[in-house]
Design a protein around this nucleic acid. Sequence first.
DNA 1: CAATATTATTAACAGTGTTAATATAATAAA
DNA 2: TTTATTATATTAACACTGTTAATAATATTG
Lengths: 197, 197
Amino acid sequence: MVKNTVQEERMRNYFIQATKEILRGEGLKVVSVRNIAERAGYSYATLYNYFGDVKELIFECINDFQEECEEFVEARTNKSERGISKIKDTIIAYANFFVQHPGIFELFYLEKPNDISKKQPTLDLIYNFLDRLTMEEWVYCIKNNIKKMDEAERMKSEIRFIIPGILLLYLNRRRPESYKQFSAELNSQLDYILHKE
Amino acid sequence: MVKNTVQEERMRNYFIQATKEILRGEGLKVVSVRNIAERAGYSYATLYNYFGDVKELIFECINDFQEECEEFVEARTNKSERGISKIKDTIIAYANFFVQHPGIFELFYLEKPNDISKKQPTLDLIYNFLDRLTMEEWVYCIKNNIKKMDEAERMKSEIRFIIPGILLLYLNRRRPESYKQFSAELNSQLDYILHKE
DNA sequence: CAATATTATTAACAGTGTTAATATAATAAA
DNA sequence: TTTATTATATTAACACTGTTAATAATATTG
């Protein structure tokens, strides 16, 4: 029984890895049951022995990608000056991760699960992801009297919405048109949000 | 030649109206070539005599829906107190339009055209839509020294990103979980953005 | 080794967008 | 008015999509 579960988990992982490869490379639009299965080395119907439907499989990738995103951000901010400066760098790194992997942005924010109620924990992870990435530094800021607690909360909630917003418009609507403009806009927004009052 | 163009425009409109009906009712996921054509009273292949592909047709609906949204907002704000108060009401009405028509939100912000370069004017319309809806009141605010020009610009650009962001998370990720919470969050964000400094 | 239970595969169904060949309708010329 | 031409609409077909049921292959147990 235990052994069975291990094998089952292994199989699930083959499909998850295959899906991740396609998502990272060609993007969400070329993710298909037959496509995934071929890359995993199995028939398309085999997939249904391990996942209820293809959306379930696709959403499984979110956890893995969050870890990758975390590493990506970590690698780009570990030398940042502590406090607001590091928070800003973290958010910029977070945004750049999605600019480099627009397919993952689609997965995180655009793709709808078949049964949204079943994916509540995953949706919560997405919603609170930036909070989690910056939490340590916010604590640092409050402890060192750089920001007050309610001030920090306000900024966090503003950032929670503005980052998906600016990414949505840039990645999905090409506004602003160039990365340079996007980057400048993001920088300006963050400076304003983080330094006011 | 002229007559021909008129008829052609009439035909295009049959398909556009059919598409709009489906979008408003069942949403983007049930929009299909055969579905649209049936509702328009034509065969599915006829559609391709008037539109290059189905995405082109779908994007044609954006103009019409913008007008509807404008009327929706107008009807809900014509008695608002002029100035910041009316700007806030306008933005809330704008958001509520999409809450009541999530399919139209998908169309405006989520759906990707086949050839994004061909849809630049439409994408610009979307990007500047809220600006257009609030422009008159911003002018009013500046003229009456309620806000300075650069202050107003900052607020406009903040709103440009935060509104799609909060709508994206609520409509696509069910965060926050209830409309009441969403509404409170939106209200709080707007108060903060519009009244600071 | 034989019987059973698991797991993987193929075939099929109902969809999707799109194109080419065909049928129908409207127009122009005789 | 009848014929020839052109424009428009329709059906058939192709290559996809997700999903399920029946079948084939494999592994496990008696």
